[in-house]
Amino acid sequence: MEVDYIKNIYRGTNISRIYIGAQSALMTDRLSWIDGTDWDFDYMNPLDTNRGMCLVMDVQGGRWVLVSSGLQKIIPFTPEVSSKETHPEIVLDSSNCNSTFVLSPGSFSTFRWPQVPDVMFYCTWRVAALGPYRVGIFFDYWGTYGSLTIYDEFGTNIGEFSGIYEREPFASFTPFNYATVKYEPGNATGGSRDTGFHAVIRPV
């Protein structure tokens, strides 16, 4: 389950391998976790003949292989940005706009919520829950003209919310343990000002 969880985090990125915190003793086959945890699980690639002191995971297939320390580099993830999207300057705030939740629980919202900015921004969130849990997204505030779409780990649209300025609190549940949420601002069609939305994430 943990292997699938890590694969989901890196799905769609240009990262191929990651270090997972284990090493071998003097180039032998005896492996140990660097934090001292007992070695009670093995997902080594049975066809791999490499020898090294550091353990990495292939994030596509999930198998583990040994490499020489320092030879493997992690390529930073650079998301593709649509030309129509306008992102704010990088400012730390509670919206968690354009970020990944490695573990839920957590929360996300429109940029700078509950403040009301002069302009709403495009935002994307990637959310994952551990193991057999699904992701529950609980919207406790909605006052936006924008549209929000939720995709499962395969990119299938599993929920789209738009066209209604005010909604009562509602929830959406993913079929698996991973989701991508995208928000697109909309034009005000009524007399009320766009005040955004807020959602809480829980494993279910």
Score class of each variant (00 low, 15 high):
N8Q: 11
N8I: 00
I9T: 07
I9C: 08
Y10D: 09
Y10P: 06
Y10W: 08
Y10V: 00
R11F: 04
R11K: 15
N14G: 06
N14I: 02
I15R: 05
I15F: 00
I15T: 12
S16T: 13
R17C: 05
R17I: 01
R17V: 04
I18C: 01
G21A: 04
G21W: 04
G21I: 03
A22M: 15
Q23E: 15
Q23I: 01
Q23W: 04
S24D: 06
S24P: 06
A25K: 15
A25D: 15
L26G: 04
L26W: 12
L26P: 03
T28L: 12
T28M: 07
D29A: 05
R30N: 10
R30S: 11
L31N: 03
L31P: 01
S32D: 08
W33F: 10
W33K: 02
W33I: 00
I34F: 10
I34C: 09
I34S: 06
D35V: 01
G36I: 00
D38L: 08
W39D: 07
W39L: 07
D40T: 07
F41Y: 15
Y43E: 13
Y43H: 12
Y43Q: 11
N45F: 07
N45V: 05
P46K: 10
P46W: 13
L47H: 10
L47W: 14
D48I: 02
T49E: 15
T49C: 08
N50R: 15
R51G: 10
R51C: 06
C54V: 12
C54W: 10
C54M: 13
L55M: 14
V56L: 05
V56C: 07
M57Q: 03
V59M: 06
V59H: 02
Q60M: 08
G61D: 15
G61Y: 12
G62M: 03
R63W: 13
R63K: 13
R63M: 14
W64Q: 02
V65W: 08
V65Y: 11
G70Y: 01
G70T: 02
G70H: 03
L71C: 09
K73L: 14
K73W: 10
P76V: 00
P76S: 02
